[in-house]
């Protein structure tokens, strides 16, 4: 047999026989679902924490909330996401609350983890808006909150949009450890095929390529977005 025939046979065994390709497509669906929900959780967490920390820095309010936010950032940026995932699935949900929903555990773990990074992105965004903008808003009679919402936030969001989208790409790739709690995401799907066919190359390369294509598409979209934002500036 030539190497080409080998490759074709390998392909058929791994993807066609027993409809094994379905492990990949089903896994991809799970990966996309986990990522999408995690993005939402992360945005909420990140935004709230950034607001708490910024308000505390400027006004001294929210003392207790700020301490909680500080602890949250330290823990979730200081420990591996796999460990957090298992803690949430086995301990927090499983042991303490009697819940065994893998999808929920994954969304919480990846979302809360990503939120810790997004909080710092949001905060940097708020700080990137010149102080004079804040003063101009206040001098017109806007309250602190009105100034933040009407004047600071729109500029901050525009500044951080590309960075934020890069964080979503990171998040997409990080969900590949979901297999640690036996959630059948894309990576796990490829791994299951490997365990059935005893061939590693074909399923793992397929998994890698699917991630790569998704990342490339997202990167392309971000670059277009960046160019668009720059155009409206001048």
């Amino acid at each position: 047999m030539t190497w080409w025939q080998n490759l074709v046979e390998d392909f058929v065994t791994n993807f066609v026989v027993d409809n094994r390709w379905k492990f990949l497509t089903d896994g991809l669906a799970v990966t996309l679902k986990v990522t999408a929900f995690s993005v939402v959780v992360g945005l909420l967490m990140g935004f709230l924490v950034a607001v708490v920390r910024t308000v505390h820095e400027e006004t001294g309010r929210f003392k207790i909330l700020n301490a909680i936010a500080g602890a949250y950032l330290t823990f979730f940026r200081g420990t591996p996401v796999v460990v957090q995932l298992m803690l949430i699935y086995f301990v927090v949900l499983g042991q303490w609350m009697g819940v065994t929903n893998k999808m929920l555990a994954a969304v919480l773990a990846f979302g809360i983890n990503s939120g810790a990074y997004q909080a710092e992105i949001f905060r940097a965004g708020i700080q990137s808006v010149p102080r004079g903008q804040f003063e101009a808003g206040r001098s017109l009679g806007f309250s602190y909150t009105q100034t933040m919402v009407t004047i600071i936030m729109p500029q901050a969001l525009k500044n951080i949009l590309p960075t934020l989208c890069n964080e979503f790409i990171t998040l997409l790739k990080e969900t590949s450890v979901a297999g640690y709690i036996a959630l059948q995401d894309l990576t796990k799907g490829g791994d299951i095929i490997r365990s059935r066919t005893y061939s590693a190359f074909m399923p793992l390369i397929a998994v890698a390529l699917i991630y790569l294509i998704m990342v490339l598409v997202l990167t392309y979209l971000i670059r277009r977005l960046e160019r668009r934002l720059k155009r409206s500036e001048r």
Binding site: P130, G132, A136, S139, F142
Partner: peptide, 19 residues
């Protein structure tokens, strides 16, 4: 905030809202 509405201010750096 109420009183500031009646006190207009102009800054050295203009501080118009760029967005």
């Amino acid at each position: 905030d109420k009183h500031r509405q009646k006190m207009g201010m102009v800054f050295q750096q203009f501080n118009l809202f760029p967005h």
